[in-house]
């Protein structure tokens, strides 16, 4: 129901798998919205004994179910921005062998993955599973501002106001897709917006 099949795309576009439990001395699980379902599916009692769950509900109701998994640590953040300093600290304190599980929207996973790789976590210890909204985190190539949760193409940059089209070109370092002015060659000629995968 909440799983979306992304169409084939170019080679810079991330692809996502399905979380699987892995052996490790500690486990960090980060999810937003219905990403909680993927955490619930992957969790094992053994994993939970050394697990830290960070959850950003975004108005969903999975708190009780996640708490019932009995992780060693549980935290609920009001937003990704509110949670990032904690994520940063946990990754900084991590010991060799930490397993990272990310589930939910592309924007959250991309940013958390960047925190993890910046902290020196090898990419082979990071798993990602997309769930829920297919909205994208977009960088305006012109003003460099980030617009979160973009659901339509084209869209208006929330910083400089240019009309941008949504590219599949993706930067892991910025954790965002690239938005490029759509009416540069014909000012004001902006096609009606539609869903990114419509």
């Amino acid at each position: 129901m909440s799983k979306f099949e992304f169409p084939p795309s170019i080679k810079s576009r991330p692809i996502y798998g399905t979380l699987e439990p892995r052996k490790g001395p500690a486990h960090l699980l980060i999810a937003d919205a219905v990403g909680a379902e993927a955490i619930i599916e992957v969790a094992t009692p053994e994993m939970m004994r050394t697990a830290h769950i960070i959850y950003i509900p975004k108005g969903t109701e999975f708190s009780e179910k996640l708490r019932a998994l009995n992780p060693a640590q549980y935290y609920e953040g009001a937003s990704y921005a509110a949670s990032v300093s904690r994520i940063h600290k946990v990754l900084g304190d991590a010991k060799m062998g930490l397993q990272v599980y990310l589930a939910g929207t592309e924007g959250m996973m991309g940013q958390a993955q960047l925190e993890a790789t910046n902290a020196g976590i090898p990419h082979s210890a990071i798993q990602l599973e997309h769930r829920g909204s297919v909205a994208r985190r977009m960088q305006c190539v012109h003003c460099k501002g980030i617009t979160e949760d973009v659901e339509v193409d084209p869209f208006v940059c929330s910083h400089c106001g240019l009309n941008l089209f949504v590219r599949d070109h993706y930067s892991r370092r910025i954790a965002a897709y690239q938005g490029v002015c759509i009416d540069a060659e014909d000012l004001g000629n902006v096609p009606p917006s539609k869903g990114i995968y419509e």
Partner: peptide, 22 residues
Amino acid sequence: WSLDFDIGMNFFEWHAPVPLAH
């Protein structure tokens, strides 16, 4: 193409938008 966007990418990633050649 944007260095600021592509910095840190590997050979296949920064060439991703090129049609046909892949």
